[in-house]
Amino acid sequence: MSYSVTLTGPGPWGFRLQGGKDFNMPLTISRITPGSKAAQSQLSQGDLVVAIDGVNTDTMTHLEAQNKIKSASYNLSLTLQKS
């Protein structure tokens, strides 16, 4: 079951990613910084990142996902799936 979260910026957003197409692993939330915008939302460590700002992550490399997140200036919309 997927869910959506919109973090209001600017960054830093307070989470780290792992995985990506180049690692043959789905993009997942690997760490959440305590007290951060991510920590105050529904994000959980281990959640799968399905889309970033409406763009499906199935074919994204780790770097492409990082760049997509960094390019979000004020709002960052994520679609996630609980692990």
Rank of each mutant, 00 (worst) to 15 (best):
L80Q: 00
F15R: 01
S4D: 07
T59Q: 10
N24T: 08
A51F: 05
S30F: 07
G9F: 05
A65Q: 03
T6F: 08
T61M: 05
I52S: 01
S71T: 15
S30H: 14
P34M: 07
A38S: 06
N75L: 11
S41P: 03
N56A: 14
P34T: 09
S36P: 01
G46N: 10
N56K: 12
I29N: 01
K21V: 11
H62E: 08
R31Y: 14
G11E: 09
E64F: 05
A39F: 09
A65Y: 02
M1P: 04
G11W: 05
T61Y: 05
T79G: 10
L17S: 02
T33E: 13
S2P: 05
V49Y: 00
N67P: 00
Q42A: 12
H62W: 10
D58T: 14
L43Q: 00
K37G: 06
S71Y: 11
F15A: 02
S83H: 12
L63W: 10
R31K: 15
K68L: 14
K68V: 13
I52E: 01
V49L: 11
F23Y: 06
S83N: 06
Q66G: 12
T28E: 09
S4Q: 12
Q66M: 14
P10Y: 10
D22I: 04
K37R: 07
H62C: 12
M1R: 05
I32N: 01
S71N: 13
Y74S: 15
S83F: 12
P10H: 09
F15G: 01
N67D: 15
R16P: 00
A39P: 02
V49R: 01
R16H: 14
P10K: 12
V5D: 02
V49M: 05
S77H: 12
I29V: 13
A72P: 09
S30G: 13
R31T: 14
K68T: 11
G20F: 01
W13T: 03
G20E: 02
P34D: 11
W13Q: 03
V5H: 03
G9D: 03
S2I: 15
A51I: 05
V55M: 12
S4K: 14
T6V: 09
Q40G: 11
Q40L: 12
Q81K: 13
L80V: 11
P26W: 02
S36E: 04
N67T: 10
V50I: 13
L7Y: 05
A65W: 03
V5G: 00
P34S: 08
T57F: 01
A39L: 04
S41H: 11
